[in-house]
Design a binder for these strands. Structure first.
Lengths: 202, 202, 202, 202
DNA sequence: AATGAATGAGATTTCATTCAT
DNA sequence: TATGAATGAAATCTCATTCAT
């Protein structure tokens, strides 16, 4: 078995370390995730971490980026399907897909999202917003009446943040009074009603 | 001549320490809130912290509780006024009051809210939810038509969490595309439109 | 109730503190006995300790002295009786009395003796040796043949140290193979046999 | 080319730290044996201590064990020679060897023995007693008359404890009235006379 | 004289980071 | 390249001692 070319092995090791970091974060929380643990979960030596990352902070950045990229992927993957739906159904579908994404790998990301240190400080939200904006534009192409809305930017901001925050909070501390599906439907209705009312009243 | 030194002095020192902790958290983030820093900002010796708190964690709990209590006070203080308003205006007013609360003391609380470690782990949200629920009931007494809404619990949950999360996020990273007032109005509209549409369609 | 004269009150407080220190030492060991605890067990404020003692070390010295004085008292109290007995019986009696002394007050002294920090560093053994020497002389007056022993000083040293050390060790970690009385008898026999053999062989 | 670094290096570091702890204890007493001091005398960083020991307590345990093991070694090493001697000479020889052991390395162990915290709490006396018991049995094989003694267990206990305690006490606070050799001879005579008298009187 | 809140030096312990192998 | 033993700065916490009341 010949040595794999440098790039590939490095790439793999980097990925391995980031994955170890996600596991460590999910298991022990932001404060509890030591470099030793990350190395252990990653199955590499502590020294190796510093071959690929400037410092611990850099791992968190890489985690945030991976999270962001994957979520963008989810959004883009859903686009073709979602643009065909009504706004209400589109929102519902998007939330469902995102929940799926957060819960995969034994809720790895969800458990990390709890540690908002990661979310707030290291996840680059820009690409996520842009992906959603793209989706929105493509949706608008098929449903042009929505463009008649004013304060579109503000409301997009509200919907997105509301959706993400409420979803994460519910998934982390489920409220026994209603199901996650109720919540998703509620968020979809909120967006749908708003738009209908706004457009209808014009 | 009355005997009260113990209680009073202790109470003061406890308050002083908690205030120092808020300042330390606001100034240096979660990492910077070391016991030394806290003691320094509080203007007491490190040892004094341990006269009144079991350990560092206990300070964070006390902070969370103080935050929760004060916010509940804000909500209750706003009640008389808010219940008279339309839902839309009520939401707007509540957001404005909360923003005021978060920004007082040179944005002390707002800057702390950024450190979601505090928010997620130490702020007891129960009392806040209950205060808002009380407010809601009193509002409903004056505006009984709102009771015709179904899934009231879910939508309340969504509105509250959306409101808090979006507000904090905006205040922390203001989006140059629109003002905070735009945001507050947007949230108010979202709630207002939703209710109108829901009730109107019945 | 008029204020007691200074001397008496102070004397009492000093005694109270020393007693508290013995209790603290017995309960929590040398490392665990903090000034706070000593004050607590003594029923006085921490500050009061420093009214009467230069520092913590001084309390230990006072404890050592009290221990020494009381033990000397025990020895002297036993003298009249002991001098009449044979050496063997005298040793036995002395050991019994000392054991009694160590076990009084719910084994207060015994439990403190475990912490040899106190024994080695703070108990002044001089007075104890002198008391035993006195006892020995008075015994010798009635049993003059013992004076024919040579290396009297060395053997006295050995007997005393052996006796104390073995007794304390047994009382602290009783050996299930034999009773304390067996031990006392053994020590008495050891001394008795030695003397008999030494004198008999001359 | 053999792979052993981990074991060997660790073993060395562990030994180094324990040695540093003995030096610190000997030089500065129980109070002075701080982790910092230990690390300094061992010539390692403080952090290294915690690579190999759970906590400070664990170092003391390791010290106690090393002491016990080495003393057992001394006893076993002396066995062949000692069993040939009369009881009196055997005791004398054993004391001499032990004194040698305590005084080696510039009295390292002797100065540590002063801190009875170590002796009482951390030295496992079991193995030492067993080694002495073994020695005793082998001695008895060559000198079977000694087995006619009754209360053998009690007297062994007394001799051993007396010997150790008296020796350590003398070495720590030499009594100018007689030499260590006098003491050793005295202890040997004590045992010897006792046995002779006991057997002779049968 | 008596108090105990306040203090801060210093102890133990952790953990990100380095570097010799 | 990969490793993990070694490191030491810095964190948390303790406790003898002081001093205003």
């Amino acid at each position: 078995m010949t040595r794999k070319p440098k790039q590939i092995r490095s790439q793999n090791t980097v990925e391995t370390i980031v994955q170890g970091a996600f596991i460590a974060l999910a298991k022990h929380g932001a404060e509890g995730a030591t470099t030793r643990q990350i190395a252990e979960y990653a199955g590499v030596g502590v020294g190796s971490i510093y071959e690929y990352f400037e410092n611990k902070e850099a791992i968190f950045s890489a985690m945030g980026e991976r999270f962001s990229k994957e979520l963008v992927g989810v959004i883009q993957g859903a686009t073709t399907n979602v643009v065909r739906l009504s706004l209400r159904d589109a929102v519902y579908e998007l939330i469902a897909q995102t929940a799926e994404f957060l819960k995969k790998d034994d809720e790895l990301y969800l458990r990390c999202a709890r540690e908002s240190a990661l979310m707030e400080k290291h996840v680059p939200f820009g690409p996520i917003y842009r992906a959603l904006a793209d989706l929105f534009i493509q949706h608008a192409i098929k449903h042009p009446e929505i463009l008649r809305l004013n304060n579109l930017q503000t409301m997009t901001y509200i919907f997105i943040n509301s959706g993400i925050a409420t979803m994460i909070r519910y998934l982390n501390h489920p409220n026994p009074g209603f199901t996650f599906d109720d919540l998703a439907r509620g968020l979809a209705d909120m967006a749908g009603h708003y738009v209908e009312r706004e457009l209808g009243s014009m």
